[in-house]
């Protein structure tokens, strides 16, 4: 946000564009629609409802039971073809500007149902436009947070007040700059270890070195 600052005698002034202020406010008060169809929705509830992760930090915890009060649609879970029309109707009922986050493999591409399913949608972007894709099966709450933060940045930087419906190229919730995948993996392993009270590092290393070994990560030999 472009901000100018001026001080006169006995007063403080903040100079900015109205559009920037509104985008800033809008990005910090996203109201998601209460909509979930399968396991990703459990993870979404974990993120938005449970106190451990506390979505309220980012101003997006007020899930609305009516599409007319919501401006963020988090599509969480497999969308079957029968559900496609109600989903589109929900999207149409939301007031503009409206944003869509697609979480999980099923919503992005069809996931495990991509091959021979007669009933599942292969990617929700067949039906509604998607702003942010969050990969995972399902993504952890942190993943969803990153998707929401990405959307917030998008709203602040690019979505204009004058053109709220102008669609930009969808973004994938990519890795933050300067952080590698290996670092995230190591951190996740540590988290698992802290929760499960077992040495996951060691088990992981053993599985990698000896695929036949038994442990938390079944090697190929074990699966046959």
């Amino acid at each position: 946000m472009a901000v100018g600052h001026a001080e006169g005698p006995g007063q403080n002034l903040l100079l900015t564009r109205l559009e920037d202020v509104i985008s800033w406010a809008r990005s910090n008060s996203l109201w998601p629609l209460t909509f979930g169809t399968s396991c990703c929705a459990i993870e979404m509830m974990m993120a938005s409802g449970a106190s451990h992760h506390d979505l309220a930090r980012f101003g997006a915890e007020v899930t609305r039971p009516s599409p007319r009060q919501a401006d963020l649609l988090i599509v969480a879970g497999t969308i079957v073809k029968r559900m496609a029309q109600p989903l589109r109707t929900l999207y149409e009922q939301m007031p503009e500007p409206r944003y869509v986050i697609a979480t999980g493999a099923c919503v992005i591409s069809g996931g495990p149902f991509i091959y021979h399913s007669y009933s599942s949608l292969r990617g929700v972007d067949d039906v509604i436009p998607v702003d942010v894709y969050v990969p995972g099966c399902p993504p952890r709450p942190e993943g969803l947070f990153y998707g929401i933060l990405t959307l917030q940045r998008m709203i602040r930087e690019r979505a204009g007040l004058k053109h709220p419906e102008e669609r930009r190229a969808p973004v994938t919730a990519a890795l933050p700059e300067g952080i590698t995948k290996q670092e995230i993996q190591a951190e996740m392993l540590e988290l698992f270890e802290a929760q499960g009270r077992r040495n996951v590092h060691e088990e992981y290393r053993r599985t990698v070195s000896d695929p036949g070994a038994k442990g938390a990560y079944p090697g190929r030999g074990e699966r046959g």
Partner: peptide, 18 residues
Amino acid sequence: DYSMKGRQPLIGPGSRQE
């Protein structure tokens, strides 16, 4: 004998051909 690879067009508002 239902074709596994058969794809049916999605119907309804805003849908595009699968």
